[in-house]
């Protein structure tokens, strides 16, 4: 039994399904409520769900995206932009990590691009995506042209190094420290990559998927409620 079309999806949704052409399957979830496989008669154990993120978008992208991407490709050279995703009116560029700093430099300095405001880094951990488990997601804004762009850079878990963009955007300082703190991504070239939110001697990187939520059991009279990450749940 396959649950590839979950029934309680909003009627209006179009994108993002495993069926959408170009979607990129990154994970397959099996079972539900903690049961797996066919031995279980409830049927939940046999459930399968593919996790598919929007894949690369073919040209033309529409709106100002084409011009900007072409310009950037010309400036940054071959292989810098691995993939362009246009999804829900937002432009995401997947950038090879060795090209990140030069891409950021061009994005900031070129007259026609001019993304001068750095909005932040957000780490995302995809443990099933072998070879590119850790993603750093940068949001940039161009005030001159009133545009927004998202850069996504990935690194394998075994070699979690991404160059720092602090030299281009000084604003990245704390954001990168935070991402290091929570995900363990090492930003090479950062002036002082230390923990920022957690205590200095904290072991581990708490917002990774393999780090438990860390809650404790809540006890009532005659009842125990486990923390949310160890409860049975929909997946």
């Amino acid at each position: 039994m396959s649950d590839s079309q979950p029934e309680n999806l909003p009627a209006t949704s179009a994108a993002g399904d495993a069926q959408t052409p170009g979607a990129e399957v990154i994970d397959q979830r099996e079972g539900m409520f903690g049961v797996r496989g066919t031995g279980d008669t409830s049927g939940f154990g046999g459930l399968k769900r593919q996790v598919a993120l929007p894949g690369g978008t073919p040209k033309p992208y529409g709106s100002w995206f084409d011009g900007a991407v072409d310009k950037l490709e010309g400036l940054a050279g071959e292989g810098a932009i691995e993939k362009v995703v246009v999804d829900r009116t937002e432009l995401t560029l997947h950038v090879a990590r060795e090209h990140l700093v030069s891409v950021a430099q061009h994005l900031r300095d070129d007259e026609t691009l001019r993304f001068e405001l750095f909005s932040g880094v957000s780490g995302v951990h995809y443990p099933q995506e072998t070879g590119r488990e850790l993603h750093a997601v940068y949001h940039l804004a161009s005030i001159t042209h009133n545009r927004r762009i998202r850069l996504e850079v990935s690194a394998p878990d075994g070699d979690a190094h991404i160059p720092s963009v602090c030299s281009v955007y000084p604003a990245a300082d704390w954001h990168e420290r935070e991402t290091w703190d929570f995900f363990g991504i090492v930003f090479d070239g950062h002036p002082a990559l230390t923990r920022i939110q957690m205590p200095d001697d904290w072991p581990g990187h708490p917002q990774r998927k393999d780090y438990p939520l860390g809650g404790i059991d809540v006890e009532y009279k005659g009842a125990v409620i486990p923390p949310p990450d160890t409860r049975r749940s929909y997946n």
């Binding site: 309680n8 993002g16 829900r88 998202r150 929909y234």
Partner: peptide
């Protein structure tokens, strides 16, 4: 109990808070 499902993907919508973006 289950809630609705949200199609896969990512989004970022900034707004102007009293302190900025």
């Amino acid at each position: 109990t289950e809630g609705f499902r949200v199609p896969a993907g990512q989004a970022y919508v900034p707004i102007e808070s009293p302190r900025g973006e």
